[in-house]
Design a protein around this nucleic acid. Structure first.
Lengths: 201, 201
DNA sequence: CTTGCCTATTGAACAGGTGTCAATAGAATG
DNA sequence: CATTCTATTGACACCTGTTCAATAGGCAAG
């Protein structure tokens, strides 16, 4: 019936690109577990073996896809180069909310999906670490870079993530600006909760 | 060699109980993915078929185990019936940290792994909803139960979870008591960040 | 045009785990 | 004891991840 069985031979770069693009597209609306070798291969019109040729195994492929998504997040939420620290923070948070808005399904599946594999978790951590680090290397007059401060920033990020996602699902009477105000305003407050000793280096 | 192949016939209640207990024990130190039918059956000294007889499939078994763990979490972190709100909160948070301590791997995989299966996600949400609700129906003189307040509590829970897990991995110079202080102290502070209007009903 | 080579690509076969079901064997009952 | 009930088993079919020798697309040389 269908004689789609013809091979199409691409350069390694093209093929790799095609597969990654497909992965990103699938990732936007499917959880990671749903991105099986079979699905990707069928969708791309290639054999399973080829996926193994380009990416060692299933996890490696997922990792490559997630890494792309994470890079996009980091890039799009880059704060402006100039301005007051608090304003830059607010700008970055705004971009973050926008990003979540634009890529909701994909973002959720990345956040909630960095679960099973430690390597995926690490990619996620790396991306969020980069997001968090900006707070320190910015003007950074309201934080010193200590282990405790980094821990607190992580906690604040987790809170922000949860607030944005929950707020998307149900705004709970908060306007977008009010939400952003809470997000940006809570970081300094939280950092002040740390014992004095742990905020100096 | 080993003639352990003798059947032992238990009542359905006993068997079910044994398997769930085993599941909980495995859950404490293994991620959900590591709790395969094979492992459980071998560990319990029964055939795989029996597991399917009692719990329809793998997911149903995992759900039963996670539900038990979630119930245990809610039970073990119940705040004392008397005392100042802040003290009761602190006691509850202490119990929470202890629980995470005792069931680290399983807890992590429950938190991070509620992603794939919607049913697991719902169990998780249910448990954390119950945890959060206690803050309102307690003495609750520092919060009124509004949509915005509930949102904020969710955010605070996410932060607490992240802080405890990250702190376990690397204490970052914070003592256990200091961590608990930050956790319990941050909730009122965060709630005060909400616009006045959204904190009344 | 065609021959040959390089390598992108395939398909078959294997491994390991999930799920099904008729057959088997404890153990209680008469 | 014999019988009956059902908890329990083991073999088997199936689905996915993974490996690898065999295949064929397309470019360059003759």
């Amino acid at each position: 019936m269908d004689r789609m069985s013809q091979r199409t031979r691409l350069t390694p770069e093209q093929r790799r690109e095609q597969l990654l693009d497909l992965g990103i597209r699938l990732f936007a609306h499917h959880s990671l577990d749903e991105i099986s070798i079979d699905v990707v291969a069928r969708e791309a019109g290639i054999s399973r073996g080829l996926l193994y040729h380009y990416f060692g195994d299933k996890m490696a492929f997922r990792e490559a896809v997630v890494r792309r998504a994470a890079d996009a997040l980091v890039a799009q939420t880059a704060p402006p180069a100039t301005g007051e620290p608090v304003e830059r923070l607010l700008a970055s948070m705004t971009a973050y909310v926008d990003f979540v808005d634009a890529n909701y399904e994909g973002y959720v599946s990345m956040v909630r999906g960095a679960a099973s594999d430690p390597v995926l978790r690490e990619i996620y951590d790396e991306a969020f670490g980069a997001l968090g680090l900006r707070i320190f290397d910015a003007g950074a007059d309201f934080v010193e870079d200590t282990p405790a401060a980094r821990l607190m920033v992580r906690g604040w990020q987790a809170m922000s993530e949860e607030l944005v996602l929950s707020w998307k699902a149900d705004p709970a009477g908060l306007s977008r600006e009010e939400l952003l105000g809470v997000l940006a305003g809570s970081l300094p407050v939280l950092l002040e909760m740390l014992p004095e000793r742990t905020r100096r280096e």
